[in-house]
Design a protein around this nucleic acid. Structure first.
Length: 309
DNA sequence: AACGATCCCTGTTAGC
DNA sequence: TGCTAACAGGGATCGT
């Protein structure tokens, strides 16, 4: 599934391939792949046609292209935003083949002439055209993103774990707030964004925290370790995922398995923990498949030795 | 306000 | 063998 590292890989691919191109035509092949607009898919098409894809920007798992009236115009007011959901992909073609079975939208680009396909097998992803709005925390952060503007539907999303402007102190404090299990807080994109189910399990394993430990019972140093682990594991995945896209194939779907060999917890139920050898467990937590080591990741702090213990 | 439950959707796999 | 059911998942939204 595409989480932050995969989405960033897509962003880089699109930035190198389609930035600066003009949207010459829009073919929505499945209406529900476009977020609800009053005028439906036709409104989507009429809003974006003729505009230029300028900067490609990401926050967490949200990706968007600023839309400029002309190439080089740096006062965009609109964004073409996308969420890949579970299975979204972008593919760029010089000579467009017949659309793939899962192709939900096809954009014809000009200067250069290219075809940009949005594919999505499980249809949880979408495209959206929406205004860029100011945000209190000062903008998307990350590479090449000077504007303090976010697509309206992304305004509530917190800075992500790889955002250099993320306030680590405030973020780790926020991770310790509330009665929810720490994994659910880590998956809450308004706190720190970009972490999905796979990297949540990985980060918790690295930080040795039980996924169901109540957030308020996580120590300050554990919360800092957790944030650091999330950052570390996603940075490593990005380093691997980012190496392998062909010139005209935007590597996207996160299922390509390039990072799978490095996973310590996710998908490894029954296998021995590489730290302690105890078998890894699996259960459903908050509706999500969850993997952890029952020995390394205790639900409660180890009891201090005392009378009666 | 905070949090849990529900729903969206389809291809694959497990089970009978 | 052929069918059905469970499952995977992020996030918006609604109800408590």
């Amino acid at each position: 599934m595409p989480e932050l590292p995969e989405v960033e890989t897509v962003r880089r691919g699109l930035a190198s391939l389609v930035a600066g191109a003009r949207i010459a035509g829009v073919d929505i092949r499945r209406d529900s792949c476009v977020r609800l607009l009053p005028g439906g898919p036709a409104e989507f098409a009429s809003e974006v046609e003729g505009l230029t894809l300028s900067r490609l920007v990401r926050r967490g798992k949200f990706l968007w292209a600023e839309l400029a009236p002309e190439p080089g115009d740096d006062a965009p007011l609109l964004a073409l935003s996308a969420h890949l959901g579970m299975s979204g992909q972008f593919r760029v073609h010089v000579d467009a083949p017949e659309p793939h079975r899962h192709c939900r939208a096809r954009l014809a680009l000009a200067e250069p002439d290219l075809t940009l396909d949005f594919l999505d097998q499980r249809t949880f992803g979408y495209l959206h055209v929406e205004p860029l709005v100011p945000t209190p925390d000062g903008g998307p952060g990350g590479e090449g993103t000077p504007l303090p503007l976010l697509p309206a539907s992304v305004a509530h999303i917190g800075r992500d774990a790889l955002d250099p402007q993320l306030d680590d102190v405030a973020a780790s404090r926020a991770l310790r707030r509330g009665s929810r299990g720490i994994k659910q807080v880590l998956l809450d994109q308004t706190v720190v964004s970009g972490v999905g189910n796979i990297y949540a399990d990985e980060a918790l394993w690295h930080a040795r925290i039980h996924p169901e430990r109540p957030a308020h019972a996580v120590t300050a140093s554990s919360a800092r370790a957790l944030l650091g682990a999330a950052r570390e594991v996603m940075a490593r995945a990005l380093a691997q995922g980012g190496t392998s896209f062909d010139a005209l194939y935007v590597n996207v779907n996160g299922e390509s398995g390039y990072f799978e060999r490095s996973l310590e917890a996710y998908g490894r139920a029954g296998e021995p923990c590489s730290r302690c050898g105890a078998p890894l467990r699996r259960a459903t937590v908050g509706g999500r498949a969850t993997h952890w080591c029952a020995r390394c990741q205790r639900r409660w702090s180890a009891r201090r030795k005392g009378p009666g213990s």
